[in-house]
Simulated scan of single mutants.
Amino acid sequence: MSGQEPLEIEMAGVKFYSAQDELYFFAWLKGIGSVSDVFGQGRAIYAVVDRDEITFDDASNSSHFFFGIKFPCLSSNV
């Protein structure tokens, strides 16, 4: 364990078209092994990623999802 600070990813301006879309998206994010927390605040969703736990598959699947649907993933904070 290297003790790196978690990475907080902000997805701003999120719009869901149904309650099922929102539930599915939160469940999908929470199912990623390196994601330690997921929460919404206003029109933004935040995912907290444990840098020590992230795998190639986590990063690859997440990036394909976000770039494939043009999801607005705007910033990250350490």
Rank of each mutant, 00 (worst) to 15 (best):
F65I: 09
S2I: 12
F71Y: 12
R51S: 07
G68K: 00
D52K: 04
S2P: 03
H64G: 07
D21E: 15
G42H: 05
W28S: 15
L7Y: 09
M1E: 06
G40R: 14
S62I: 09
S34W: 00
Y17P: 00
S76R: 14
F16A: 08
P72H: 01
K30P: 02
A44L: 09
K15M: 05
E22I: 08
A44F: 02
G33K: 00
Q4K: 07
I45T: 14
G68P: 00
S63N: 04
F25A: 10
S18L: 02
Q20Y: 03
E22M: 13
I32N: 00
L74C: 10
L23G: 15
F71C: 13
V48E: 05
A27K: 14
E8D: 12
S18I: 06
Q41A: 13
V78P: 04
I32A: 01
P6T: 11
Y24A: 14
E8M: 14
D21Y: 03
F65P: 00
F66Q: 06
V35L: 09
V35W: 02
Y17C: 03
Q41K: 11
F67K: 06
I54L: 13
Q4W: 11
P72A: 06
F65S: 06
T55E: 02
S76K: 15
A44I: 06
Q20T: 14
F39C: 12
F71W: 10
L29Y: 10
V48I: 15
I9N: 07
A44Q: 07
Y17T: 06
Y24D: 15
M1N: 08
R51K: 10
I54C: 03
D37V: 03
D21F: 01
G13M: 00
V49K: 00
V78W: 06
A12Y: 03
M11K: 11
T55Q: 01
I54H: 03
K15Y: 01
A19T: 05
D52H: 06
L23R: 11
L7I: 13
I54E: 11
E8H: 10
S63L: 13
S62Y: 02
M11W: 08
D21A: 11
I9A: 12
D37Y: 05
L74W: 04
I69M: 10
N77T: 10
E53M: 12
E10W: 05
V14N: 06
G68A: 03
E8V: 15
I32L: 10
L74N: 07
E22S: 10
I54M: 12
V78Q: 08
E53I: 08
K30R: 14
Y46L: 10
A27F: 04
E5V: 07
S60H: 06
E10G: 08
E53T: 09
A44T: 12
E8F: 12
V48T: 10
F66L: 08
K15E: 12
F39L: 09
A12I: 02
G31N: 15
K15G: 09
F39S: 14
F71S: 08
P6G: 04
L29D: 02
N77M: 05
E8I: 15
S63W: 06
S36M: 02
P72V: 01
S75L: 11
A59I: 11
F71M: 14
I69G: 12
N61K: 05
